[in-house]
Structures are given as structure tokens and as C-alpha cells.
Design a protein around this nucleic acid. Structure first.
Lengths: 205, 205
DNA sequence: AAATAAACTTGACACCGTCAAGTTTCGGCT
DNA sequence: AGCCGAAACTTGACGGTGTCAAGTTTATTT
């Protein structure tokens, strides 16, 4: 082993997750290599097995962190109670797109990969938390102040989520090439204009 | 070589594409194996190299076929000139989601993979054709009968595309687990209700 | 019929994920 | 304090992967 390091790393699990995140941000999720992650963390190729069952296990944990970060991004951008519910939903959407662009590989891992195990309770919890945040903003917008679920609230949340997710995915994957490169302000305006029609018609029944 | 086959296959290129499509539909893009595709086509592991530069080349061609099939699906479902433009846009959306569900791996290859080379003229042409089909339906809906592009038409097309793509991606990736399994009619209704607000407000300026 | 090109095979290489077995260190028990 | 088991980590092996180089077979051209 190298001189600096102890045999027992101490915080290898966290270190591996950090390394893996850098790994996929540089090489993309499709070129993920567990051995490279281990090397980056300065340990042998089989070391990760003691902290994660296999590569899928690591990617499951990483995906959970991805959803956590998505939620953090949304919360950081939330204008808060004083703002209108409509503004708050739009801010969520803008944060969602920000996340997709800034952490494209992680976004892909979360939404377009079969490698994470979505049965995993930790991942499920993190993914649901990010979704429920949006659901609660939509409910507030629709003045459904009750914590109870309404079928219609769910439908509307899914509609808004789809709109936001679609633009995030297409922008991050560079599929909207008839747009030039949008700066942040232009992007935010695009997202707002896309959400406008969905928020204008509450459509509660 | 096996008794039945000739040394020169004759139509190996097409055969490889067919085999690759089956391959990814069974194993997903993330587990794509060029050697397995070759084996499935009854040919040695290095044979594909004579028809495609490398695995990426094959996947580029396959992605182009994916966009072609997406367009075909949309055209097959188009109610035609007699229907309202709104109905035609909705049918496009329903076909898009159908495609994503029925050919999930291919959909992922087209929209959530870095492996195809999107600089490839063939792929670009196929992808653009599928997009332009939607753009023309939207233009018709907005009564912009001119073939000319309007900035606003582009924005509206992107908005509708994002909505459709979002619901397609989330449904196909099984991310809407608060919905039970939707049958085809329910799915179509969901898509229609999502597009309704976007089509109701032409918002041309 | 001979030469050339194309299609395909075989074998090698480095890299990959995972498993098994060995080594080092940590922590608790006596 | 000293031991001992468990945990953390390493080393080495295995089959599988994509790609390259070199050889063999078939088709086409001259």
C-alpha cells in the first residue's frame, strides 16, 4: 500500500461514493467502471465489495444521493412561504432542470438506468421525497390544503412532473438543437412559459 | 462454420441490426454485448467490424432505425387530414408513448444514451424527421400554414415535445408508481389531458 | 485463369466485474 | 496486557467484453 494511507481507510464507503460521482461525471454512466472508482479512491479493485454488494449496490446508493441532491437543489431555490404557489412550482421546475444540466450523469443514473435497484428502501425513500416535494407544492397551488391525497392532485402533479422532466431530459441530452445554447435566464423563462398553461387551469373536479 | 451457412452471409449488416434490436430488448442497452449480437447472427465475434466501425457504429445505425420506427408509429396512428390538428397532435403524443413503452430499450438508445454518434448524418436525418413531423402538426394547429419557421412555433413544439417526452420517459421507466398499471385507453386519456392545456392556449405573438 | 478485393475467422490483448483465499488491522473480552 | 475473532483490505484467478492484427475463404474484376 502507499505510504500515506492506513490499511483501514476509515471512511471508504463515503470516499467510494464521491469517487463514483466524479467517475460518472467524467465518463458517463455507460462507461462506469468499478475498478476505476476503486483506483480513484486509492484502494484495490476488490475493496468496494466490502461496502457494497456489487457495482449495482454502489450505483443504488449513488442514485439515492442523486435524488437527495435534486431535492436539496429544489429547496435551495424555493422562494419560500411568502411567494405564490405558482412561483414555487416554477422554481422547482427550474431547479430540476438545473440539476439535470449540472449533474447530467447523475440525472441519467436516477432516471434512465436499470442499474440501481429501485426496490431498495433507501433509494425509494429518496426518490419519493423528491416527488412528494413537488406534489405538496402542486396541492398548495390547487388550494388542497389537506394533507390527504386526491386523485386529481396526483394527476396534476404527474402532468407537471412530466413537463419538467421532459424539458430537463431533452435539454440535458442536447436534443433541442434548434435552440442555440440557452443561458440560465433564458432557460428559466422557457421553463416558466412551459408551465404557465398547466398552472393556469387548476382543473379540479 | 456451421453447415447451413455460407461463408459470405450476404445480408449480415441487416441481420446484425435485427439481432442487436432483439439483444437490447432482452438485456437492455446497458448490457449490450457486440459479441452476443454476433453470436445471435451466427457469425464470429469480429465479423461486425466489417459492417460497422465498432459497437458505437452499430448502435448509431440502430438508433436511426429507432427514430424511423417512432415516426412510422406516429404516422400509423395519424387520423389524417380530416381530423382536427389538435387530435393529430394528441395522436402523435400517444404514439410516442406507445413507442417508448413497446420498445423501451430502443427508446433509451435514442434519447438516453451517449453511445450513438449524433453527428452521424443518417441518425441526424432520422431524428430530425421525427421531430419535424410534430413541428408541422403543431404549426397546422396554430394555423401557421406557411412552411416557414416561426420562433414561436418552435417554442410551442418544444413545449409539447417536452410534455410528451416526459410522460413517455417516466411511464416507460416505471417512475409513476402511484399510478397502478394503466391500460392503453387510460394511458391515452392521461396523455390527452396533459396536452389539453398546452393546445388550448395558442399563445402566438 | 489469375489477381485483387471483400467477407469472415481465429487469436491475442487489455480491461471489466466478481469470487475465493490470504493478510493486516481493529475492537472487545478475559 | 494479551489474545482472538471479526472487519477491512489485498492479491490472484476466472469468464466475459471490445478491438486490433493476421490469416483464410469467397466473390469480383481483368
Amino acid at each position: 500500500m502507499d505510504g500515506s494511507g492506513k490499511y483501514h481507510h476509515g471512511a471508504l464507503k463515503a470516499e467510494l461514493l464521491k469517487a463514483a460521482e466524479i467517475e460518472i461525471s467524467e465518463n458517463g454512466i455507460e462507461n462506469f467502471s468499478l475498478r476505476r472508482v476503486a483506483k480513484r479512491a486509492g484502494v484495490s479493485h476488490a475493496a468496494p465489495a466490502h461496502h457494497f454488494r456489487d457495482a449495482g449496490g454502489l450505483l443504488t446508493a449513488l442514485a439515492a444521493r442523486g435524488f437527495d441532491k435534486l431535492l436539496e437543489t429544489a429547496e435551495a431555490r424555493d422562494p419560500g412561504e411568502t411567494a405564490s404557489a405558482q412561483e414555487r412550482v416554477m422554481s422547482y421546475g427550474q431547479a430540476y432542470v438545473d440539476f439535470a444540466l449540472r449533474h447530467h450523469a447523475l440525472f441519467r443514473l436516477c432516471f434512465a438506468s436499470d442499474r440501481p435497484d429501485y426496490q431498495d428502501p433507501g433509494l425509494k425513500a429518496s426518490a419519493d421525497a423528491a416527488f412528494l416535494r413537488l406534489a405538496s407544492l402542486v396541492a398548495r397551488h390547487d388550494r388542497q390544503d389537506s394533507v390527504e391525497w386526491s386523485v386529481n392532485g396526483l394527476r396534476r402533479t404527474y402532468a407537471i412532473w412530466s413537463q419538467v422532466h421532459g424539458v430537463a431530459d431533452l435539454l440535458a441530452s442536447r436534443k433541442m438543437h434548434f435552440y442555440g445554447n440557452l443561458d440560465e435566464a433564458e432557460r428559466d423563462a422557457v421553463i416558466k412559459s412551459m408551465l404557465q398553461p398547466l398552472l393556469a387551469s387548476p382543473d379540479r373536479s
